[in-house]
Simulated scan of single mutants.
Amino acid sequence: MSTSDKLQLAFERFDALNQADPNTEVFEGKSYPKEVLYAQRMTKQLNSFAPKASEALKLTARCQHICRWEIPRDSYDMNREGYLRWRQALKKFHSEKAASVLSEVGYSEEIISKVSFLLEKKQLKKNEETQTLEDVICLVFLEHYFEPFAAKHPEEKTIDILQKTWRKMSDKGHKSALALYLSNDALNLISKAISA
């Protein structure tokens, strides 16, 4: 099986698992399982931001939230400690789910280990591919999820989230973020956050 065939098959397997997401999102008049749409947005953003991305990074972007609904946020205490424990559990869960699919598709242990490494966000700011993944995650958040988030929260919390997001990004990520097509309200909040 060629590399491109294997990659496409893995994408199809990831998307098939995410089709079971009970949460939906309407985009451009069509309803999608939430994590299917998120995965497609991740792939699209990676292709734009890093068109020469490795196969491992392409796989990771596609499965970054695989079956996320199976471990809901409220299954952990609704405080900072609970949030961090939830995030750690998700990283391990996504890594195991992805490894199972990649093994079935016929990927090598080397690729599977690399995808796990990236899913667990190891060496952020030190490893180029981990940083690229984080930039893409942040760009997808800013482009598609930030404005609905801002509408539900006070400005102070929104700016705090933006500052945390900004700190995780590279200079290249910052430039791409400022080039996104966003509303004036969103751009004003970003401006406040990065100038504070």
Rank of each mutant, 00 (worst) to 15 (best):
K164G: 13
S4M: 15
K34F: 11
H153D: 11
N79S: 09
K6G: 10
W166K: 07
Q8K: 15
K164Y: 09
Q8H: 13
F49R: 06
T132K: 05
S95L: 00
R13I: 00
M78V: 02
T130I: 00
E12T: 07
D21I: 03
M169S: 08
G106T: 01
L189G: 03
F93W: 05
E110I: 09
S170T: 12
P72E: 08
I190Y: 08
E143K: 14
A196P: 01
L90I: 02
F93K: 11
S4H: 14
Q123E: 12
K114R: 15
A20C: 07
G29D: 01
I66A: 10
N18M: 06
Y76F: 15
K125T: 14
L59E: 09
H94Y: 12
L187D: 08
L187H: 12
D135K: 03
K172S: 08
P51G: 10
N184F: 06
F117L: 10
C138P: 14
I111V: 15
S191I: 00
S191N: 14
A99C: 04
D160L: 11
D21E: 03
P154D: 15
T43E: 11
L162E: 04
T3P: 01
D135R: 07
F11Q: 05
G82H: 03
G82W: 01
S31R: 12
I194Y: 12
V36P: 05
D74F: 02
G29V: 00
E55I: 01
A98F: 03
W86A: 04
T60N: 07
K91M: 05
K92N: 14
P22R: 07
A16W: 01
L139Q: 08
L119G: 10
A16G: 00
E155H: 13
F49Q: 08
E55C: 07
